[in-house]
Amino acid sequence: MSDVDFDAVYQGKPLVEGSGIAFDLAPWDIKAPQPAVVDLVRDGQFRGEVLDVGCGLGENALFLAANGYRVTGVDGSAAGLEQAGRRAAERGVDVTFVHADATALTELPEQRFDTVLDSALYHCLDDEQRQLYAAALHRVTAPGARLHLLCFADVDAGLRFPIAVSQDNLRANLGAHWDIEDIRPGSYTTSLTPEVFSRIGEDALANLGFTVDAQRVRQDEQGRIVGPIWQLRATRH
């Protein structure tokens, strides 16, 4: 996803330079934590100090911190982190935000974190970057640390996301450093609605990598489009 300018997206500019296609909200900005993350917290799947890598606008990190976890949010977009910091201040929630390359994480100390959350970062990387990323996460996590990773799935469920990945890809790129315990289908809530898709147009969406079947696409109770993900759980070697 190297052609996506995340700073531009957070500033209301086109997702891809020259495409002319901009969204009122970043497609992943639902102004709340992902429901899948809420479920993980409810089920006691986080422990100790938490790293939210690819935290974006910080909604998952803020939710975790509000539930009593010590959280560090990392992202490569300065514009996204600036907005995340403002949201944290407005809500009186304490999260440490760090501007860093997720494939290196050199700004973070070794063996610090007990749980990692990756909500929609992995699929943004190419395979070489994914392998570096797996190693970087291994370096900054404690022995036995947990990884919860949500990524776009190569599944036709009415909406097919750009840069969707396979379960085999996850195993190949993470397996050197992480014991993968489970990969299951899940759902990712977007800020997009059928009206947004209609305004942008089918051809323009296809150029961005979205495949949409209006008859089968899922929506939540607020009318937001929901797409397929893989939900992975792993433990650090």
Rank of each mutant, 00 (worst) to 15 (best):
16 V>Q: 10
16 V>E: 10
17 E>D: 10
17 E>V: 12
18 G>V: 11
19 S>Q: 12
19 S>N: 13
19 S>K: 13
20 G>Y: 13
20 G>A: 08
21 I>V: 15
21 I>N: 05
23 F>R: 06
25 L>S: 11
26 A>N: 09
26 A>F: 11
27 P>A: 02
28 W>V: 03
28 W>T: 13
28 W>F: 10
28 W>H: 10
28 W>G: 15
28 W>K: 13
28 W>I: 05
29 D>T: 00
30 I>L: 06
30 I>N: 01
30 I>G: 00
31 K>A: 05
32 A>M: 12
32 A>R: 15
34 Q>Y: 11
35 P>N: 10
35 P>R: 06
35 P>I: 00
36 A>N: 02
36 A>E: 07
36 A>H: 04
37 V>S: 08
38 V>M: 13
39 D>E: 11
39 D>M: 04
39 D>P: 00
40 L>A: 08
40 L>F: 14
41 V>P: 04
42 R>K: 15
43 D>S: 08
43 D>G: 01
44 G>F: 00
45 Q>H: 13
45 Q>N: 12
46 F>V: 00
47 R>Y: 06
47 R>Q: 14
47 R>V: 14
47 R>I: 11
47 R>M: 06
48 G>L: 10
48 G>K: 14
49 E>V: 08
50 V>S: 03
51 L>R: 12
51 L>Y: 12
51 L>G: 08
51 L>E: 10
53 V>W: 15
53 V>T: 13
53 V>G: 09
53 V>Y: 15
54 G>I: 14
54 G>P: 13
55 C>T: 15
55 C>K: 13
56 G>W: 01
57 L>K: 05
58 G>R: 05
60 N>S: 13
61 A>T: 04
61 A>S: 14
61 A>F: 09
62 L>P: 00
65 A>E: 08
66 A>N: 14
67 N>R: 15
67 N>E: 13
67 N>M: 10
68 G>M: 11
69 Y>L: 03
70 R>M: 05
71 V>F: 06
71 V>H: 07
71 V>D: 07
72 T>M: 10
73 G>C: 05
74 V>D: 06
76 G>L: 04
76 G>T: 05
77 S>L: 11
77 S>A: 08
78 A>D: 11
78 A>H: 09
79 A>L: 01
79 A>V: 09
79 A>H: 00
79 A>D: 02
79 A>Q: 05
81 L>S: 07
81 L>W: 10
82 E>A: 04
83 Q>M: 02
83 Q>Y: 11
84 A>W: 00
85 G>M: 10
86 R>N: 03
87 R>H: 12
87 R>P: 04
88 A>H: 05
88 A>L: 02
88 A>V: 04
89 A>P: 05
91 R>C: 00
91 R>Y: 02
93 V>G: 08
93 V>N: 07
93 V>H: 07
94 D>V: 12
94 D>S: 06
95 V>Q: 02
96 T>M: 02
97 F>P: 10
97 F>N: 07
97 F>V: 03
98 V>M: 09
98 V>N: 08
98 V>H: 05
98 V>K: 10
98 V>Q: 12
100 A>V: 03
100 A>E: 06
101 D>Q: 04
101 D>F: 00
101 D>R: 14
102 A>T: 06
